[in-house]
Each structure stands twice: as structure tokens, then as C-alpha cells.
């Protein structure tokens, strides 16, 4: 039997080189390395397999693995780019990059559209919008009358559905967001600017000198 003394780090499945991920996203190499520390922690929280499962995502956000939330489900599904039910490191970094304060607004607008296009028809349909409003009211224990919900949805369609065909397409969505920038406020996480401060342990594991 040989004695192997390797310093090579064991990476999680779906690991990609920080230099590659940094070149394709809004993150620096150091930030990608810090995100790897976070990713390892999240991906081992319930099922120790180096991949983020929906339960782990929910647990991180709500401290409750069974708490159902329509919007967390949608965000997880969009993070799961390969659509295999789990989020690997590459998917995690590429998806979080959209939430970076420096990410292009066009990416944020496109991501929000996909989020709201629940059934992925390429349009935000009126019944999808109503379903999301009802879900939000339900999860917040807020009560609004059916008539009032209808009025709000109608008003939104009057403003956003400029072509008047009863659904919001990507072009209409973009125009609507540019008129109402607060609609993509959720697509920016200021925290991502400080990710290297939040996870300083990446410095110990860094294999790439950061030229930035």
C-alpha cells in the first residue's frame, strides 16, 4: 500500500475553476472563492453531498426545511440551470451573479421575467399574476377582498400590457420595469459586494493569487 499525502483539495461535484467563473460573471476570483466557502456550508447542511437541494435552500432562508414558498421554489428552479433538481457550484455562482450590484440591469430584468412567468410560456399571464398576489397575501396573512385583488391586477395590466393582448411579454416587461425600477429591487443583493469579508476563510484555501 502506498502512502498518499496529497494536498489536493477535494472539490464538490460541479466545481468549476474560480478564474473561469470570475471571467463569466460579475464576481472577482476572490469573491468566487469566498462563495465556495458559503456553497460548501449550504450544500452540506442537510444532505452531505456537495450539492444544494431545495430543502437546504429553504432551510437557509427560513430555518425550516418544510416551509413552502412559491417564490423560493421559483428562484431555486431558476438557479437549477441544468434542471436536475439540485444546484451545483457553477450554477450557484452564475445565478447569484445576477443579484450582484454590478450585474447588468438587463440580466436582472430578464431573470425577474422568468421568475414571474410561472408556467414558462414566455408571457406573464393574468392568472399567473393573480396566483402570485394570492400566494403573497396568504403567506403574509394579509387579507384583501377578491374584488380588490382583481382591481389591482386589472390596473397592473392596464399599465403594463401596452399591446392589450391580455398578457405581458418580455418587451412590455422591460418597458414597465424601466418606468418602475423598484420592481427589480429584489434582484440586487448589496451583501454580495462584501462576500469576501463575510467568508474570510477562503483566503486560507485560495490557490489563485488575486490580481485585482
Amino acid at each position: 500500500m502506498g502512502c498518499f499525502s496529497s494536498k489536493k483539495t477535494k472539490y464538490t461535484p460541479g466545481y468549476e475553476e474560480p478564474t473561469v467563473l470570475a471571467s463569466e460573471t460579475s464576481f472577482s476570483v476572490s469573491e468566487v472563492e469566498a462563495l465556495y466557502e458559503l456553497f460548501k456550508k449550504l450544500s452540506r447542511s442537510i444532505i452531505d453531498d456537495g450539492l444544494i437541494h431545495k430543502e437546504e435552500f429553504q432551510f437557509a432562508l427560513f430555518r425550516n426545511r418544510n416551509k413552502k414558498n412559491l417564490f423560493v421554489d421559483r428562484i431555486f428552479d431558476l438557479f437549477d440551470i441544468k434542471r436536475n433538481g439540485v444546484v451545483d457550484f457553477g450554477e450557484f455562482v452564475r445565478s447569484l451573479s445576477i443579484f450582484h450590484p454590478d450585474a447588468p440591469v438587463s440580466e436582472k430584468i430578464a431573470f425577474a421575467f422568468k421568475l414571474y412567468d410561472l408556467r414558462q410560456t414566455g408571457f406573464i399571464e393574468r392568472d399567473e399574476l393573480k396566483e402570485m398576489v394570492v400566494a403573497l397575501l396568504h403567506e403574509s396573512d394579509l387579507i384583501l377582498s377578491e374584488d380588490y385583488v382583481e382591481t389591482i391586477v386589472d390596473k397592473t395590466y392596464t399599465d403594463a400590457d401596452t399591446k392589450g393582448d391580455g398578457r405581458i411579454d418580455q418587451e412590455e416587461w422591460k418597458e414597465f420595469v424601466l418606468k418602475n425600477p423598484s420592481l427589480i429591487k429584489n434582484m440586487t443583493l448589496p451583501y454580495l459586494k462584501d462576500i469576501t469579508l463575510a467568508f474570510p476563510s477562503f483566503v486560507l484555501n485560495s490557490e489563485v493569487p488575486d490580481s485585482e
Partner: peptide, 24 residues
């Protein structure tokens, strides 16, 4: 006012990903 349905939806805590970064 100018409240629209998307403003209401955006109030969901499901959008707040900052929980991912909090120490467990």
C-alpha cells in the same frame, strides 16, 4: 395610489436571499 401587483408580490420574504449569507 400607484400600487401595482408586482410591488405586492415583491414583499414576499421568499425574495430575500440574504438568509443564505447568515451564519447558521
Amino acid at each position: 395610489g400607484n400600487l401595482n401587483a408586482f410591488d405586492i408580490i415583491s414583499l414576499s420574504p421568499g425574495f430575500d436571499l440574504s438568509g443564505l449569507f447568515e451564519e447558521k
